[in-house]
Write a protein that binds this DNA or RNA. Structure first.
Lengths: 218, 218
DNA sequence: GAATGAAAACTTACACCGCTAGTTTATGAG
DNA sequence: CTCATAAACTAGCGGTGTAAGTTTTCATTC
């Protein structure tokens, strides 16, 4: 088949299909040949639209990141904005858990990831956090969200009662975790996020508000 | 070469060499043939000692997890034990960052990972946390530690000033993050961990101590 | 001490992988 | 109308995990 009258592929169609395959079969199951086959095309044709497979994955990762809502930093106080962002971030990642290991490596040059970092950092600095602290807070929350989406804690335990009974006295119920996967993971996230934000709020009154009130025009 | 008089390979030697290769060149650069070559042997010989490559990676991951110290749960109060554990956990992972994406998927059937989960969960329950809460706390801290070790936040930003200057007003200094990688990552971890533990301590007095004092013999 | 079976290396080979090179034809710009 | 570019193709390279079968040695059993 030579060049067709209407292009068979577009970047969007490739990214969309890649994400669907990753969601369905995992990151490891995405090969250029399988992706191409799902698009009704031969493997190397993809390289007319992307230079490398990593570029495809970058695009997939960025559409996932693009679903994260950072608008709170423009309208709400920093604490509420952080909470909204963290939940939205988590929702975006858990909707496509298989891409998280790739995405969690860092923003790289992906526009949506950089825009997110920009919004968070900017929002925190605007709220009065010293720049270094704003960096740390953004990083800490990213750690927590990425870690929570990366391989469900609950699903990480095998569904095999005998494995635990013998050697791990406190894990007798661990095999049941898989059943309640979603609620365990969400409960852990909710608890951890609340604790984190609680701690940050305390830190805020301790450092930022203290410093401001000490200034002549604070 | 037929069967040699003294075996050329042992599981330990394979795991050790695999970890060294992963540390040096990354997880993606570990192939059975390269690993075998580093051991002075042909690729398929590895399969006399491990059934699959994943089994090798499991063993590597478990030696890394084995370096985590959970002894605090036997000797200190739960809050100090959590802090010690989290730092030890982080040190173990950041010593071998390239294996973290594999390891972070969950404990699976790896003995060291399961022993760690057992110690943490047991310690928290012994301290008075309700079982469900203990699960959540262990998970939340694992999220945070794994996220922090999985692809350095700082290194995730490209060292290219022009990339940021144009479109991301608040990230003008982001390209400098790579320089201070270690201190940024550690600072973010320290801040986040302190905040998390601060929040958990508050939650403890709110729920556990309240409940206990309400009991007749509390 | 001979026989035997498992162990541990080997070679060969398969199906798949990412990607390059070169070919063919349709499209759109001048 | 010309022609560079775009977008599909086929063929193929070097690499991957691993299965199959071979050879020799070791450890055990009669």
């Amino acid at each position: 088949m030579p060049r067709p009258r209407r292009p068979l592929l577009t970047r969007d169609r490739i990214v969309e299909t890649a994400l669907a395959l990753i969601d369905a079969d995992g990151l490891g199951a995405l090969s250029t040949r399988r992706l191409a086959a799902a698009l009704g095309v031969q493997g190397p044709s993809l390289y007319n639209h992307f230079a490398t497979k990593d570029e495809i994955l970058d695009a997939v990762a960025d559409t996932v990141t693009g679903a994260v809502d950072t608008s709170g930093f423009a309208s709400r106080d920093w604490l509420a904005a952080l909470r909204d962002w963290a939940w939205s971030y988590r929702r975006a990642l858990t909707a496509h858990p298989n891409i998280v290991p790739y995405l969690a490596q860092g923003p790289g040059r992906r526009p949506a990831a950089l825009a997110m970092a920009d919004a968070v950092y900017g929002g925190l600095v605007r709220a009065g956090w010293p720049p270094a602290r704003a960096t740390h807070i953004g990083a800490a929350l990213r750690y927590f969200v990425a870690g929570s989406a990366l391989g469900s804690f609950a699903r990480g335990f095998v569904e095999d009662p005998e494995l635990y009974a013998a050697h791990y006295p406190h894990l007798r119920q661990a095999h049941r975790l898989a059943e309640h996967q979603q609620s365990v993971d969400e409960g852990a996230f909710a608890l951890g996020l609340d604790a984190l934000l609680h701690g940050l709020a305390a830190e805020y009154t301790r450092t930022v508000e203290t410093v401001e009130s000490a200034r002549p025009n604070g």
